[in-house]
Design a protein around this nucleic acid. Structure first.
Length: 268
DNA sequence: ATGGTGGAGATTCCA
């Protein structure tokens, strides 16, 4: 019985509840982390999740924008709903969950997109994104003999050259500018996080989790980016048993522009 | 070089 975890930027949990139900029915991950729920807490679709066996629900929403949720078949303990950069945005939620006799601290993040102009002097959204990533330096991959950490979410940065369809053409596009990718990798290393999606994958292999709504034919042009990530503490690398990017979900009816990533650990 | 699409909720911002 492995421990399975999915992360998905759902772009409105209420509008896309039929797709969430499809994912949970078909794949039944133990835990699902959602971003961009765009749903105030009192309007969250609790009953739909409970009806599918996801009795344990932690949410940190807000009206109209952002918002994260972590739903689980296993008991959850809410650890923190942290606001970054002194801004009243709902972009982080951490919980504890047990698997294989160990306690896992699970961070669910929605990093700011950063706007269009990659200049922090004239675009406050880009300044905010850089500040947000800098503040994430404090989030470390805590681990000991009995505990581990996982960090997932829409981090809105594609750090490596083969995490985008054209490295050269995206160097000045927000999500792949050097100032972002360098601070992102520095932050990941400072926290001692392992990028599980790249662990056993050749460097040259393209990996995407997001395809723009603006493409005429997302599948034909295939101009994707890896904006969604699964990180863990080093002591989860031995039980890590692979993952899947659910590319097909981009072709579902009224899809999100992000697809789910499902990771498996041989823990329990 | 430009604009393309989609969601929320209010007639525009955000991604």
């Amino acid at each position: 019985m492995p421990f399975t975890l999915a992360t998905w930027n759902i772009n409105s949990v209420r509008l896309r509840m039929p797709l969430v139900e499809r994912l949970l029915a078909e794949r039944a991950p133990d835990v699902l982390c959602l971003q961009e729920t765009k749903c105030p807490d009192d309007l969250f679709p609790f009953d739909a999740f409970r009806g599918l066996g996801y009795q344990h629900i932690a949410i940190f929403g807000q009206k109209g924008y952002h918002g994260v949720a972590t739903v689980s078949r296993r008991p959850l303990e809410v650890v923190e709903k942290r606001r970054f950069c002194g801004i009243e945005d709902s972009r982080h939620l951490s919980v504890r969950v047990s698997a294989g006799g160990r306690s896992i601290l699970l961070h669910n993040f929605y990093v700011p997109a950063g706007g269009d102009e990659p200049d922090p002097e004239i675009n406050w959204k880009f300044r905010h994104k850089l500040d947000f990533v800098a503040e994430m330096n404090a989030v470390r991959a805590e681990q000991d003999d009995f505990s581990s950490s996982i960090l997932v979410g829409d981090l809105n940065i594609a750090p490596l050259e083969h995490d985008v369809w054209s490295h050269k053409q995206l160097l000045k596009i927000v999500s792949h500018t050097p100032v972002e990718t360098e601070s992102f990798e520095a932050m990941r290393k400072a926290g001692e996080w392992v990028d599980l999606m790249r662990l056993n994958v050749p460097y040259e292999q393209k990996l995407y989790t997001w395809w723009s709504y603006r493409a005429q034919d997302w599948q034909a042009s295939d101009r994707g980016r890896r904006l969604d990530h699964v990180w863990s503490s080093a002591n989860l690398v031995p039980p890590f048993a692979g993952y899947e990017i659910l590319r097909e979900a981009r072709g579902w009816e009224r899809p999100s522009d992000h697809v789910p990533v499902i990771a498996r650990f041989d823990l329990d």
